[in-house]
Structures are given as C-alpha cells and as structure tokens.
C-alpha cells in the first residue's frame, strides 16, 4: 500500500486530551470527534485533515487510553500519522481502528508539501528525502491490512 497526501505538521508530546477533549467523549457519534479533533491544539486543523498525512514529533498520543483519539483523526479524513515515537496505547489503538501509524525518524515537516509512504517497501518520502520506517510486528501488519481489529477478528 502506498499512501500520499499533504503534510499537516503538529508538535511533540501531543496528548490525547489535545487530540479530542474530554468534553466531547460522551457520545457514540464519531462525526462529533471528527469535527472537534485537535480543537484545543489548533482549531484550524480539523478542516485540513481530509486526505492529509499528519507528521508529529516524539511521543505522539500520550496520556489517556481514549480510542476516540485515533478514531477522530481517521474520521476527519487523515490517512496516516508519522512520528519518531508514539505513546504505546495510542499506537495500539490506531492499528486496532485501522489508522496507519508510522514510526520514522528524521522527517522534516513542511505544512502542505507532499508526503509519500510505502508500507511494503518500508519508507517515507518527504522534502526530497527517503527515511526508513520501523517495521510493525507481523500481527500488527495483519490487523492493519484487515482494516482494524474488528474486521481482523471477524475474518479469522
């Protein structure tokens, strides 16, 4: 699978409260999360996520275990998140809800410039440079390929 889209740059240590604030959690309506995603970080971000690839700094998704965070990003239309490191629950949740999360060092982020990801060949291309991806475990790759843990489980 090759993914390509404009970069949306965010900082490091972005906690899940900043991804989707607690005040929007009490619903099953995923469009609410998509509408308010990253609201407390930058209210102009949500409309820019359609088809975009988020490039974050270290420790992306730290804090709460709320699965609404990766769901909000996916529902807002972002196609992948790249970071040098992720908080482990966010990482696992993202795979489980079918949002590709890519561990990759050294990506220079320029808002709006094209980023390309090859999951098969294991690289990210941004700003004319190719960077290797840290590979997912076999099982995580299978879950992601199935579109998340629920379809993975149903297919077995």
């Amino acid at each position: 699978m090759t993914l390509s889209g404009p970069a949306v740059c965010i900082g490091k240590d972005i906690d899940t409260d900043l991804v989707i604030a607690g005040r929007y959690l009490r619903t099953k309506d995923t469009s609410v999360w998509a509408e308010h995603v990253f609201e407390d970080l930058d209210p102009t971000l949500a409309p820019r996520l359609k088809g975009a690839i988020i490039v974050a700094g270290n420790n992306m998704g730290c804090g709460s275990s709320r699965e609404q965070a990766p769901v909000a990003i996916r529902e807002a239309g972002a196609i992948a998140v790249i970071a040098p490191s992720f908080a482990r629950i966010f990482f696992r949740n993202a795979i489980n809800v079918g949002l590709p999360v890519i561990e990759c060092d050294g990506v220079t982020c320029k808002d709006g410039s094209t980023v390309t990801i090859s999951l098969e060949e294991g690289w990210v291309e941004a700003d004319g440079m190719r960077h290797p991806i840290r590979p997912l475990s076999d099982r995580m790759q299978e879950i992601l390929a199935a579109g998340g843990l629920v379809p993975y489980w149903r297919n077995r």
Binding site: G63, S64, R66, I89, R92, N93, N96, G148, L149
Partner: peptide
Amino acid sequence: DSHSCTTGAFGAFSTGVGATDMA
C-alpha cells in the same frame, strides 16, 4: 484506562489498553 498500571504495585503485570483491545 491508561492508569491501569496502578495495580502493578502488587507485583502484577498491569497495563492499559484501548476499547477495541478490551472487546
């Protein structure tokens, strides 16, 4: 819940996951 690491205080391996993992 992310603070599920609390009961590691008993010498258990205690950790947090998200909702789909829990299901």
